[in-house]
Design a protein around this nucleic acid. Structure first.
Lengths: 120, 120
DNA sequence: TATGTCACTTTAAAAATGCAAGCGTCTATA
DNA sequence: TATAGACGCTTGCATTTTTAAAGTGACATA
């Protein structure tokens, strides 16, 4: 051991709030899954069907990561073949302002970009 | 050519605003450079010195990408060895609400996370 | 001439991503 | 009863991205 006290908190890169948010969610797919959940999707197949076409291995990996991080939780919706549906936790729901800020930015600066609304 | 009309806009993945924002900025480093610029940094060495320790080839690559996308612009601050400083454009400054939303989220949900403020 | 600074670039290895196919359980159809 | 399909993944492998480390070129300073 070579630290001087035990109150150190282990950050992947730094204590910066933005950096820590990115350590968990800073990739091209995680927030799209959160978006889909906000839009009302809940099942694996629904995420896989989204227009961006997430590879299924990445989808499975991200669902695991988000669940371990407490952003989503899963529950069985079928017993005989055990199948799960996913939903946002409060931690996950609290990402909505981030998605909204990102959408606002893109609406202003990416020509042609559209906001995917809840019902479509 | 096999498209039927010329008004198609080419999106990397979909017209979704969030997806398009992520296509440009959805990685672990780009928004940290934007953060540093908001915090008042402007030079290559300053970005490289940030606590997260961005690899220099990634830094150079991201600066190019952000410049090509119009998020930052560079200008020479020295002539004899030509050296550049970087600053945010309006498009880049408009990312501040995104960073703030991300920081708010992390402050609430990542224990120990701190907001890096402008003067430190 | 020698050393150092700054802003990168290069190289090679490691890790992440993407594509396609496969798998196990079950339901529905012929 | 055999066949096919839906669903939710997992696996294998090629490609791309990221990483750490070292190197480069222009110049300032001693």
């Amino acid at each position: 051991m070579n630290h001087t006290h035990t109150s150190d908190i282990d950050f992947e890169r730094s204590p910066c709030a933005v950096a820590n948010m990115l350590d968990l969610l800073g990739d091209k797919w995680s927030l799209l899954i959160v978006r889909d959940l906000i839009l009302g999707k809940s099942r694996y197949g629904e995420f896989a069907d989204s227009r961006e076409g997430i590879p299924t291995n990445i989808l499975a990996n991200r669902l695991k990561r988000l669940e371990m991080a407490g952003v989503i939780k899963k529950s069985a919706y079928s017993a005989k073949p055990v199948r799960y549906q996913y939903e946002l936790t409060e931690k996950g729901r609290d990402l909505q302002p981030v998605l909204e800020a990102m959408a606002d930015w893109a609406l202003k600066h990416v020509p042609g970009a559209e906001v995917f609304s809840r019902y479509r």
